Simulated scan of single mutants.
Amino acid sequence: MAFIATRGARAAAFTAAALGALTLTGCSSDEAEPAATGGDATTGAEAPAELTPVSVQLQWLTQAQFACYYAAADQGYYEDEGLDVTILPGAVDIVPIDVLTSGGADFAISWVPKVLGAIEQGAKVTDVAQIFERSGTTQVAFADSGITSAADLAGKAVGSWGYGNEWELIAGMQANGVTLADLPGGATVQQAFDMNAFIAGDIDAAQAMTYNEYAQVLETVNPETGELYTPEDLVVIDWNEEGTAMLQDAIWADSERLASDEDYAATTTKFIKGTIEGCIYAKDNPEAAADIVTAAGSTLGTSHQLWMTNEVNKLIFPSTAGVGHINEDQWEQTVSLALETVNPEGATIITADPPETAYSNEYVDAALEELKAEGVDVMGEDFTPIEVTLSEGGE
């Protein structure tokens, strides 16, 4: 199939900085025609179905973090559902929920704690599928730093990206009796979206996603050995293990459209269904999924892209209730932490419980039921990660 470059629609606030988007109309390897509806009374030939255009705003750039969506498009899962999906890559200055609520996209991918604050400020959006069941956020330190847990972060230079990515870190420190006042200068260190400052020794404990920044360290040569750094050189503080993990990549939909537009509601289930199939494809075919993302425009190296695909699979599989189902206990933990975790300005993410419309399993469960009826394994209980060998620089 071909990936066709287009310009995604943006609301007025975004038109000046509109990004090139990828219009991804899924197709099979033999370029099969779209599913037919009805036939020609004269010739008996089936007429191609008209696909419903759908756009989704990603939280970040094109990379295997979003392998589910790119694989779903490439393998024709969206097209099988009658959808023509345009994937809009993100950037530092793009807030996915703002794009969604301004009409610039039909769906958006974003972390739950970030969106809870937006909902409290008036955004009418609903988490309709929780694609990542586990958090990929960690804090990484060198093994000789004296840091072995979140409690050891007191007095250390602790890196954070900010932009709403810091909440698990702050919650983890608070749970271990460490406040921002216990850090040098009374604050975290502003960290770039890389590990350069950490490797240079300017940051003692750096924020790192399992599928990205952690690998960046392992792709770097240790000057003391002349070989790449190894996991044994590092200490990883995992917020899943610390009990302060918050829900991350979710599919968000427009709450008012869900309530008033039957076609949009039906499209939501179809989009989720195709996406879940894309996730399953990436699980079963990580090398192919990594190649699909690379072909879609990612600039990451081959080994890094495969590492990312493999690590993202771990955040999704095995699933406890079906890929995308929003587990109530995890939702409640995220909300509880959002109510209790205090940022450097002394404010919490939210001040009251979110409305009932903040999440719904109605659409994802409908998609899961359809998939199960078709014999699709939506749990992935037999999932086994592959072994990925990283190369210097992720090449």
Rank of each mutant, 00 (worst) to 15 (best):
D127C: 11
D74K: 15
V115W: 04
K124C: 01
E133M: 05
F66T: 14
G44C: 06
V125M: 00
V56A: 14
Y77W: 14
G103I: 01
P113N: 06
G44L: 09
D93R: 10
G82I: 03
I87H: 14
V112N: 01
V92S: 15
L88M: 14
Q75C: 13
D40W: 03
A91D: 08
L61R: 15
E120G: 02
F107G: 02
I131Q: 00
E46I: 02
Q75V: 04
T43K: 04
P34K: 05
S102R: 11
P48A: 08
Q59W: 06
D40Y: 05
F132Y: 14
I109N: 00
T101H: 11
W60I: 02
S55D: 14
L116A: 02
G104R: 06
A45L: 14
E50M: 09
L58H: 12
T101E: 00
P53W: 02
G90Q: 03
W111K: 05
G104T: 00
A35P: 03
G90R: 11
A72S: 12
C68G: 10
A41Y: 05
A72C: 10
F66G: 12
S102C: 07
V115A: 11
A73T: 10
P34G: 02
I109V: 06
Q121L: 10
G103Y: 03
Y77V: 03
V56L: 15
D98Y: 03
A118V: 03
E81V: 05
A71K: 10
I97R: 07
V128H: 03
F66H: 15
T126F: 09
A36F: 13
G39Q: 07
E79N: 13
D40F: 05
A129L: 02
G76R: 01
A45C: 09
Q121K: 13
P96Y: 11
Y77F: 15
Q75P: 01
L100D: 02
I94Y: 08
L58E: 00
Q130L: 11
V85P: 00
Y70G: 01
V85E: 07
L100G: 05
Q59D: 07
T101L: 13
L61E: 12
Y77M: 06
V54S: 07
W60Y: 08
E46Y: 14
A32K: 14
V115L: 13
I131N: 00
C68I: 04
V128K: 05
K114V: 08
A41S: 12
C68L: 07
G103T: 05
D80M: 08
G44H: 07
G44R: 12
D84M: 11
E133Q: 11
A47F: 12
A73G: 00
Y78Q: 06
E81Q: 15
F66Y: 15
K114G: 09
Q65Y: 10
A41H: 07
